[in-house]
Amino acid sequence: MNETLFQILVIVGVLLGTVSLAAALIYVERKMLAVWQQRLGPNRVGPFGIFQVLADMIKIFFKEDWIPPFVDKKVFILAPTIIMLTVLMSFAIIPFAPGVVVADLNIGLLFFFAMSSLGAYTIVLAGWSSNNKYSLLGGVRGAAQMISYEVFMGLSLMGVIIQTGSFNMTDIVNAQKDVWFVVPQFIGFVIFMIAGIAETHRLPFDLPEAESELISGFHSEYSGMKFGMFFVGEYLGITLVSCLITVLFFGGWLGPSFLPPFIWFIIKMFCFILFFVLLRATLPRPRYDQLMSYGWKLLLPLALLNVLITGAIVLSAQ
């Protein structure tokens, strides 16, 4: 009974924690962008503008949730729910501390791949159902981008899986007791991070919603809370990729014992979240063909080479 209660607590905690963190990230991102671009950032609502998120939330909840008459209504409503659903489901496999995990699946990493590949539906369906040529272009771009970068994302993690011998996330963390996987799997780490940014379609890889050419692409027609779901879904995606980088390459909860494991996890995760914000503040957006050729001509061979070398080394060490 006690264990069941603990499980329920973990589930509710992960759900509330991630969603509120995603909302808070809106403020963090705006403030950090301001710091890096030498501006003030939000500073009107409350001390240092920390209630900005609250004000934004109130605004977005009370906005009219308008469905344009020319859209395919059912699909239009379905599309934004998919991104929230898939990203929140992916958090189920993240071990935040020893034993604190919603579902300790033995196919953990594969479950994440499955969920992230389903995430592509949200862009494609939103772009198609909006019945708008800019949205359609955004949807087509998004589909091609996400399918391409999923390939390298999967391949870049194969090195970690070969070294651990398991898809289970807890096993992967425990295998990093001696040395974090970022050292032997540095190429895998870099490729995974690039693919992770492309999967969450953040700047610099935000071509599906490039506001200067596609007037925010696949979600042009969305308003109110439906737009809010895309928005929060993107921040949830950043949090998820940061969590995964922490677990897969930086030893998860492992760290010197003067801080509890959970705190170590959170510290590492925040470093990567801030790194993603820094990327947004500094890098320009590539052209679409550059994005594609960069992926298929550089990242794919590199990822394959990484798998080959890791496999050879592990095999010869046996």
């Binding site: 499955a114 494609v124 359609l136 087509v140 091609a144 999923e150």
Partner: peptide
């Protein structure tokens, strides 16, 4: 569901 069906949808679009 994740790869082949998305490509189908791509073609439909």
């Amino acid at each position: 569901a994740g790869a082949i069906m998305i490509l189908f949808l791509f073609a439909i679009m």
